[in-house]
Amino acid sequence: MADIRENDIESRDEDGSASVSRLAWISSGVGLLLFLGSVGVLGYEGITRGSGPPAITAVVEEVVPAGPRWLAHIRVTNDGGKTGAKVQVEGQLMAGDEALETSVAEFDYVPAGSEQKGGLFFDRDPRAHDLRLRVLGYVEP
């Protein structure tokens, strides 16, 4: 066994080139690619993403029945430069200037440049009323 291996090495040394195995080249090549890739993406993101405060907006995606109640699927988007934590979103069913019902959802994190989903439950059908969404506030993580 040892003899065979030694012969192997000798023949490879005679070739003079590619003494490092192909697998080693592949794995280190992949490593280099991932290394440069992740540093590149992070660096690019750091440069292009502003450093301004979170700019968080909420929209209603759809309203579906949920048992005897109603569920409004909501989506919050952060177009600002920083992540907002503990983001509270309040939904109010309005009849004129009067709020019939208020529900609140809190998102642990809304990362900069991304969106999160959630839902608000109501006793009345939100489609029959004016559903007003407000992003109440956030804290810095």
């Binding site: 490092v20 080693a24 794995s27 280190s28 090549g29 992949v30 490593g31 991932l34 290394f35």
Partner: peptide, 8 residues
Amino acid sequence: IDALSAFA
């Protein structure tokens, strides 16, 4: 090569 492989 070792270091890059470990990162991969």
